[in-house]
């Protein structure tokens, strides 16, 4: 298990943002990069590897990774469909949207389709209440969602997504290098 050279380059730049001896601060961005590089989730092996990169104990990585909702601690599908379920989105139909997606994909929230394509996840307020309901996929916000747009999103994923997409991506890592 090893980060790509691009990722290692970005990580070394990120570490320099914090004072000498405070490199533990880089843990959240490094975990985002790890999730992007190692299949969209953080396995125990991945977390142990991150600990060696930051020169901290594995338990320091576990306790952080398990606190933040963007980190997946179990394997996920290529596309993680994140539907906001909090108040304002809920007022404008998020619950029906989640039910629709469950029926359409034949899975419950938290599950992955048998073909490994989709994981359905509900998340809390994404700061997009004015364009509710909202779905986040990778780094992209899909706003003012409705059934038609949701269907199209799923179809687009099926047609175009070959590699797992996570919030941070190779594209983002490249951007960080620029």
């Amino acid at each position: 298990m090893k980060f790509s050279d691009d990722a290692l380059d970005v990580i070394s730049r990120i570490k320099k943002r914090y004072p000498e001896g405070k490199q533990k601060s880089a843990i959240l961005p490094v975990l985002h990069i790890a999730q992007a590089e190692f299949g969209g989730w953080l396995s125990p092996e991945t977390m142990d590897y991150v600990a060696t990169i930051l020169n901290i104990l594995p338990v320091e990585v576990y306790e952080v990774a398990s606190f933040y909702s963007m980190f997946n601690l179990t394997p996920v599908g290529k596309c993680v469909i994140e539907v906001c379920r909090t108040g304002p989105c809920w007022l404008l139909g998020a619950e029906d949207l989640v039910n629709y997606l469950q029926d359409k994909l034949g899975i419950k929230v938290g599950e992955t389709t048998p073909d490994g394509m989709f994981t359905l996840k509900t998340v809390e307020c994404l700061a997009a209440c004015g364009t509710a309901p909202i779905i986040q996929l990778g780094e992209t916000y899909h706003e003012n969602m409705n059934i038609e747009k949701a269907d199209k999103l799923l179809a687009d994923c099926r047609a175009n997504i070959k590699e797992p997409i996570s919030h941070w991506s190779k594209k983002h890592i490249k951007k960080e290098q620029a």
């Binding site: 943002r17 405070k22 533990k24 601060s25 880089a26 843990i27 959240l28 961005p29 975990l31 985002h32 930051l54 901290i56 320091e60 306790e63 952080v64 606190f67 933040y68 909702s69 963007m70 980190f71 998340v123 809390e124 307020c125």
Partner: peptide, 26 residues
Amino acid sequence: YVHPGAGAYICGEETGLIESLEGKRG
């Protein structure tokens, strides 16, 4: 510098935010 969080409402509380910026649970 910009520092990304990773999904936790509590990190909007200023001392939770500071803990998170130090690389810990918020």
